[in-house]
Amino acid sequence: MVSIDVKNLCLEYKIPRRFSLSEGSKPLSAGGRIEQSAGRRVVAALSDVNFSLGSGDRLGLVGPNGAGKTTLLKVLYGIYEPTSGSLDVSGRVDALFNISLGFRKEVTGRRNIELRGLINGWSMEEIRARTDSIIEFSELGEFIDMPLKTYSQGMAARLAFSVSTTFEPEILLMDEWIGAGDASFRDKAAERMKQISQKAGIIVLASHNESLIEKVCNKCLRLENGRADPVVNLETDGAGND
């Protein structure tokens, strides 16, 4: 049984004040609210987020830049630990954030599939079982045994997309919809995303594209400055609730 349970989740981090002789070394923050207290600056990236999702739920995260959408996805993925509140995730989590993470230009496409698979946490058997369908979907043909640096950008993106989406996720986290390659590949990619989202138990999708969210998701969570509104049920409440 897959589920995500988030209760009163808060994420804060401190920005230490540093003395520096070099100019322009002010720390960058990813968003959220910067609060000053007792000489320390604390970024409240997420405060008091509540929702719970079960099998079949598709949650859309919306909000302006720096609202905390990506941060929330990364908390769900396990990259950041919540400062307070509770987070219960049951089910295998896969994520599509940075699809070309870990790609190496000096080695062949085939070897890149292997390396990327390991990074995704697949075993060698799983990788071997999937390699053929990844190659087929990427339409790279004989180029698969050429070094990645001989690929055009579109070819590399196709490979990255194929590797990242050849799995059967129980819980899928996505940051923006991914467009890869030329028009015909984009259609194929959209079709693949639809299949995955039908198979996945739970999807959490962060996007600025509200019509996409309405098309894919049945629930919607609006974030602003790290604060979350209550979850809106798109199916029963209707789209006019905004």
């Binding site: 990364k74 993925y77 396990g78 990259i79 954030f97 940075n98 993470l101 870990g102 990074i119």
Partner: peptide, 9 residues
């Protein structure tokens, strides 16, 4: 950093 911020390895 790109791995640390992009994967839960």
């Amino acid at each position: 950093s790109s791995f640390i911020k992009g994967t839960p390895m």
